[in-house]
Amino acid sequence: MPEALSFKFDVDGEDFTCAGQASVIVKKNLRQLGLPPEIIRRVSIAMYEGEINMVIHAGGGKAEVNVYEDCIEIVLIDNGPGIKDIEQAMQEGFSTATDTIRSLGFGAGMGLPNMKRYTDYMDIKSQVGVGTTITMKVNLT
């Protein structure tokens, strides 16, 4: 099997204005690979929500996108506060975001549900005080 194509990013947790930059680059790269627009859209929305979460909830982190023959994998790793109750966090409308974040257009508690909705596989590993790793996959076949 040929080696997977891989894109790696450091996501800056300091600057909300820059949040989402990596997702925009991934979208452009996937377009160049000539993948179907619907697949590209699902991958980039899921990654964008995850990237925003890393910035607003975890102070930044690392993002990696791997293009395999049969799927696209997105891995988001942060050393933030972690998620205490993942089941609760997955519920539509649940959010711990501040009013400041809400005034910026996020914090509706739709991010994690959106990530689940747009991907074929999603796994959250999180430990309070240690960090969160989210792995998502979108099938190509």
């Binding site: 909300f16 204005t17 820059c18 949040a19 989402g20 930059q21 997702s23 925009v24 929305i45 964008y48 929500e49 925003i52 809400r102 910026l104 257009g105 996020f106 914090g107 509706a108 508690g109 739709m110 991010g111 549900p113 959106n114 909705r117």
Partner: peptide, 27 residues
């Protein structure tokens, strides 16, 4: 609310908004 746009919108080509920041463009 950008997450609502990301959640419910399908093939809408125009976004009307009162929000002004870079996330609007990225969304």
């Amino acid at each position: 609310m950008m997450s609502d746009v990301l959640a419910y919108v399908k093939d809408q080509a125009v976004l009307m908004t009162g929000l002004v920041n870079s996330q609007v463009i990225r969304t």
